[in-house]
Each structure stands twice: as structure tokens, then as C-alpha cells.
Design a protein around this nucleic acid. Structure first.
Length: 284
DNA sequence: TCCTCCCTGTTC
DNA sequence: GAACAGGGAGGA
């Protein structure tokens, strides 16, 4: 569930709790949670968590002092000796517990620091951790094909990327290779705000309408970050707090309820393998 | 390019 | 006791 605004919120709430801390010990409670870099596991001991970043839906910890400052602005993670990369998928979360706290039912990894234990919990076990050197990132297909950051890219540029695809617009928004960080919630909310039907073919939609859609994407992401993300069921930040953007939903999870614009009933349909909620009257 | 599967807890 | 939630890999 954590999409871009939720991961951004996790980064912001986790960073003050781990920055500058030394990793004393790592416990891997579920083998498959560590998707890559098992050989590096022993080298984590004694490493310093220097900084925490986000790229798309990924959270990245930069370990040990930067070797050089030259990359800092654009891709700050490139300057660290080693990286801890996490994908939360649906139910991944972080929480720092007091020393001595026992693993919980869904705890998959524990990072012991001097004054606390960082738990990576994940009920549905789709989330993962990778330990990587920056030089290895280019060989990881998911990373090397990741689309641009929607909040760092002009709306017109995003619109042009959407315009290139022949699939329906919902699938295009969910495709991380086109734009990074958008999931089911923000795709539906942005499509409604731009009044575009989720099944419209991306390349058939006028560029001006796609630009409006890109602006709507940026707007919902920005506002959601301000609201600390959306909490539907499982999402919590690294302090255990829920977000509040769910109060701003115009369509997501509102099947059968009335459209706030035209008063017609909202409908759902499975599109691109996801439940899509939309207004059949306002969106075309 | 689209569909199925992975997984577990909650809701119908 | 089935349907549902859903990001992304992999197969049809």
C-alpha cells in the first residue's frame, strides 16, 4: 500500500530515529525478505546509517561516510559505501522499539542500534530488503528502468511520457517504468480530478488533458505528503502514526457512494488487475 | 499486452 | 468459506 507519499512520510519519520546510528547486529527472521546481498550481511555490523532517501516507492539507507560529494544533488545514494534498500509493497513497515524488545508475529528483520531495535515488519511478506553497492544498481532491472520522479518533473514532460503508451491510462499510471511512485489510490484520485476514464487509451487522450492529469498526479501526491499519506488498513509511519489523506479521497474506496461533483453513483471495475473506482458520468 | 500468482488477515 | 486487498514478476 505505501505509495510515494507514504514512503516519503516513512523516510521523514524514520530519519531522525536512525541517522548517525551504528548497526550493532542484524537478524533475518524470514529468509526471502532479503532479496539480494546476502553476502554483505556480515559487513553491516558496525556500519553507520548516514542518511535515508526515497526513490519512487523505495526507501534507501546510505551506509558509512560518503566517498565523494560529487553526486550529492541528484543521486545522493551513489556516494555511499553500501546501501540498504527496502520496498514495502502492501504491508511493510518500520518501527523503532526499545532495546530488548522481542520480535513480533510479522517481524522479518531486526537492526540493532545502541539505543533501540529497528524492526522491519511485513504481514504479507511481499516487501523486501536488498543490500547493494551503488555500482550494482545499474544491473538491477527494476532500478535501471525506474521512471522519473513525478514531483521533480514538469507536468508537460510527464504528459508526453503518458502519451507514448498504447495501453489504457490506468495501467500506464501504474507502470513504474513510465512514472515512479504511483499506485492504485493516487492513480484513481488523479484520474477523477482530471475527469479521464481509467480505460481511455493513453495515446488517444489529448496532450492537454494528459497535462491536466499529470498536474492532478502532482497535486494529490503533494497534498498527501502534507497529510502524511493515506491510511486505509495497514499503513503507519515509522512513529506508528496514521496518515490522513484518506479523508480527501474523492473516489478511492467509495464504490456505490455519490460522486461529489455530479451526484451519480461511483462504479468499480477491474482494470489492469486492480479495482478502479470512477464516476461514469464525469470521467470520459 | 494482459492475466495469474505470491501472501495473510479482514470482510462479506 | 469465499472474496478481496495489491506491487510487480513472469508466463501465456
Amino acid at each position: 500500500m505505501p505509495e510515494l507519499p507514504e514512503v516519503e512520510t516513512i523516510v521523514r519519520t524514520l530519519k531522525p530515529q536512525v541517522q548517525g546510528k551504528e548497526i550493532k547486529k542484524v537478524e533475518l527472521l524470514l529468509e526471502r525478505t532479503l532479496e539480494a546481498g546476502k553476502d554483505y550481511l556480515p559487513t553491516l555490523q558496525g556500519a553507520i546509517i548516514h542518511d535515508v532517501f526515497r526513490r519512487g516507492k523505495l526507501l534507501i539507507m546510505g551506509l558509512n561516510q560518503p566517498a565523494t560529494e560529487s553526486f550529492k544533488a541528484h543521486e545522493p545514494w551513489l556516494s555511499y559505501e553500501l546501501l540498504l534498500i527496502f520496498h514495502f509493497k502492501m504491508t511493510g513497515r518500520f518501527f523503532v522499539h526499545p532495546p530488548g524488545t522481542q520480535a513480533l508475529k510479522h517481524t522479518r528483520m531486526i537492526f540493532d542500534m545502541d539505543d533501540g531495535r529497528l524492526f522491519f515488519d511485513d504481514m504479507r511478506t511481499f516487501g523486501y530488503c536488498r543490500i547493494m553497492k551503488p555500482a550494482e544498481l545499474k544491473d538491477w532491472p527494476f532500478w535501471s528502468t525506474y521512471g522519473p520522479e513525478p514531483l521533480d518533473t514538469p507536468a508537460l514532460e510527464l504528459a508526453k511520457l503518458l502519451k507514448e503508451k498504447r495501453t489504457n491510462i490506468k495501467a500506464t499510471l501504474l507502470d513504474q517504468k513510465v512514472i515512479a511512485g504511483i499506485g492504485n489510490i493516487y492513480a484513481d484520485e488523479a484520474l477523477f480530478r482530471a475527469r479521464i476514464h481509467p480505460e481511455a487509451k493513453a495515446h488517444e487522450v489529448q496532450l492537454s488533458r494528459l497535462e491536466k492529469l499529470a498536474s492532478a498526479v502532482q497535486e494529490v501526491l503533494k497534498i498527501s505528503i502534507q497529510e502524511c499519506g493515506s491510511s486505509i488498513r495497514d499503513y503507519r509511519d515509522a512513529k506508528g502514526d496514521a496518515g490522513s489523506f484518506q479523508n480527501n479521497f474523492l473516489v478511492y474506496g467509495r464504490k456505490g457512494e455519490k460522486c461529489k461533483v455530479c451526484n451519480e453513483s461511483l462504479e468499480t471495475k477491474k482494470i489492469a488487475g486492480r479495482t478502479s473506482t470512477f464516476c461514469p458520468h464525469c470521467q470520459y
